[in-house]
Amino acid sequence: AAAAFERQTIEAFTPFDVVITPALAKKPQPIGWFSHDTDPLENFARQCQYAPHTSFVNVSGLPAITVPTPAAPGERPWSVQIVGRPGGEARMLQVAAQLEAARGPLPRPGSIR
């Protein structure tokens, strides 16, 4: 089943140089939201709700990179995921560099609540 999913996903992405998706499905959470004190099944369920867009790419084996996007002052930045074709890392990295250049510098870690 995993191999079939991989083939189908790669086939679906083949017409595109890159595909850009959200990296997260929820607002960035504070440290401790994923906790070792939480039941492992609950942690897994939280991960599936929090980052569903990256999981399928990991399973498919496609190259991907996540790039932070601008945020309001004092807020944690969101991110986009750039997914490339098999062997398409160069194009994917070019797009990531363009997004980073357009975004500008991120706030320093101490300035984020």
Rank of each mutant, 00 (worst) to 15 (best):
P15S: 09
P63S: 10
P15V: 06
R103E: 07
T69I: 08
F56R: 13
T21Y: 03
T21I: 13
Q29I: 01
A97G: 12
Y50C: 03
A71C: 13
P63K: 13
D17A: 14
D39F: 09
G74R: 03
I10D: 08
P52W: 02
E42C: 00
I112L: 11
P15C: 08
V67D: 00
I20R: 02
N58S: 14
S55Y: 12
R91T: 15
V18E: 01
G87T: 02
R91E: 14
P68S: 09
L41G: 06
A72W: 09
R113D: 05
P22C: 05
R46D: 13
Q29T: 00
I65N: 06
P77A: 11
I31N: 07
A102N: 05
R113I: 09
A72Q: 09
P22I: 02
R7Q: 13
G61Y: 11
Q94A: 12
A1H: 15
Q29C: 04
G32R: 03
Y50W: 04
V67C: 03
G88M: 10
P70G: 02
G84L: 07
P15G: 03
P52M: 06
E100R: 15
Q47C: 02
A101N: 10
L24R: 06
R7Y: 00
V80S: 01
V57R: 01
S55P: 04
Q81P: 04
L93I: 12
I82F: 05
Q47T: 07
E89I: 09
Q47W: 07
P68G: 06
F5T: 03
P70Q: 01
A64C: 14
Q29N: 03
P15A: 03
Q98Y: 12
T54C: 15
A4G: 14
R7A: 15
Q49R: 14
P63L: 09
C48L: 11
A45V: 00
G110N: 06
W78Y: 09
L41I: 14
V67L: 07
T54R: 12
F16N: 03
E11Q: 14
S35I: 01
A23H: 07
W33A: 13
I65M: 10
P73C: 11
H36L: 15
D37V: 01
P28T: 06
R103A: 08
G61W: 09
